[in-house]
Amino acid sequence: MSQPSTTSTGKLRLTQVSRRIGAQLLLDQLSLEVEPGEILALLGPSGCGKSTTLRLIAGLDPLSGGAVWLGERNLTPLPPGERRVGMVFQSYALYPHLSVERNLSLGLELRGQNQASIQGELQRVLSLLELEGLRQRRPAELSGGQRQRVALARALLRQPDLFLLDEPMSNLDARLREDLRPELRQLLRSAGVPVIVVTHDQQEAMGLADRIAVLQEGRLQQLDTAEQLYSRPANRFVARFIGTPSINLFSRDGQEIGLRPEHLELARPDAPQAEGWRGLDGQISHQEWLGDRVVVHLTTPGGTTLRVLRPRPAPEGPWQVRWSSDAELHFDPRTGVRIH
């Protein structure tokens, strides 16, 4: 894929960006940096502030504090149209009354860019995204995947200095999503500008992004690679949010212990226990098929429920759940911060 506009645009920098509506704090002093060519995912449950962040960067909502920088340019005072951002909306927001072609070119035309250069760019972007055959179609005549590509093409055509994507895959069915992910990742990377993807889906965040920022209630919880988020979560929230099936949490000796279901094993209570391993007796309450694997739910005599991930269902009978003490994550029960 050729991309003539890979000139370095500078990194995106958010410094203590806040958003407040009345007494409600939607985003609390968020600071982060994204390098050109890097893809950052904003991940969190709905209402965590991830879409708010995207809208602040795009200039669709005003900041209550802080600043947005792109390289040496302060974007904060600029209206959205002058920030040179390319944005893909969750609904794709294609103009329903215009053809694919006009959907892409409207903005440039109205800025008075000359027709010849628009047509050249249009041709390049349409062929890049394999949309040439659909030039004259209306959005209503396109499939979900085609609409997504048109939305991407519209953002690309402007040769943006910054790419923003709001849940770009959520309107596609699960199969298509998996198929398109590597393609999208490749395309975004090749643009050579900072990219931010908002998503509530950890699979998508891990599949697309180089680093992931986990947000909750308007605060940044952790910003790290997928691997680090999984193995070294900053706190209980991140530990619980990352990984499926989600982490087992229980108290022991005044500490909160976290254990991933995939790190647990089942053994008969009378089987010998290896050095450095721990165990808890349990009764199987039910088993859940995931297709390729099985989640076994057990209840301990103390009333704790544990989930164990296994390749096959477990037979009936008494079991002991066992794990290596290295796999344990320890959290401060009061603050939720990981201690060990």
Binding site: A58, L60, P79, P80, G81, G86, M87, A93, R111
Partner: peptide
């Protein structure tokens, strides 16, 4: 908003 980003007044 898409139109705003497109720079339309």
């Amino acid at each position: 908003e898409a139109a705003l980003i497109d720079g339309l007044n």
